Amino acid sequence: MEQRNDHGMERGELHVISTGRQSSETLASIAEEIHDYVDVFHLREKAWSDREMVEAIEWLLAMGIPPEKIVVNHRIDVAHVTGVKGVQLAHHSIDVSTVRNAFGHLSIGCSVHSVKEAVSASEHGADYLLFGHIYPTSSKPGLAPRGLEGLRQVVRSASVPVIAIGGITPENTRETIQNGASGTAVLSGILLAEDPLEKAIAYKEELRRVAEDEQTI
């Protein structure tokens, strides 16, 4: 049986975030292959126009990805008009309380990088948080990771689920969950892998095993 928290999130969710390095067609093709093992797909494409974002969502839907699995980063209007699951807010986005009041039907995630940001977002209406980076990653060269201690502090301080991001691999997935994360988020580790399906299965299977182990404790 899946464990759920008060915000409806399953324990051990796998979020896959677009890399900004693939076309919408390529992304949709990979998503079709892996979506049985993925809980949420995030479209994080800063260079795409609103029209391109809508077209990408149309591609995903055409490939059989349910709208309740799709989250749009920052573009609240795109998330609203396309009827997808929700929006992921960044530090430069409209504040979460304003979005919550205007778009109460959307699931709202917030990307945070400190305890202060995590507490504020959770108190003002976020459904979940994305926190990182946890481990060293090539996408953040020269920037020290916030580590497992940072993750534990955010989990203790926030009143909503926390998804860990940054340098997550199947091998270190267990310790991120054991340190309080409700799930993990991955970009290139799946989408740019030689075999995305194999990688998606590896991540999801490790999340499943951790959840099962927790239930037996």
Rank of each mutant, 00 (worst) to 15 (best):
R75M: 04
A79K: 05
L61Q: 13
M63A: 15
H80G: 00
L61A: 14
Y37M: 10
E32R: 15
I30R: 05
L43P: 00
P66L: 09
E32F: 10
A47V: 09
S49P: 00
A31E: 04
K69G: 11
A47E: 04
H42M: 06
I30V: 15
A56L: 09
I94Q: 03
F41L: 06
S107H: 08
D39A: 13
P66V: 12
W48A: 12
E32T: 10
A47L: 04
I34D: 06
N73D: 01
N101C: 05
E52A: 14
R51N: 10
S29C: 08
V40I: 15
N73M: 02
K85D: 12
V87T: 08
E68F: 12
D39W: 02
E58T: 15
I108W: 03
V99I: 12
I76F: 03
H105P: 07
L43V: 11
K46H: 06
W48T: 11
E45F: 02
D36G: 07
V84A: 09
S29F: 05
D95M: 07
F103V: 05
V72I: 15
R75N: 05
R51P: 00
V87P: 00
F103Y: 15
V78M: 01
A31N: 02
V38T: 14
K85I: 12
H105F: 13
L60A: 09
S97L: 06
A102C: 11
R75K: 11
V87F: 00
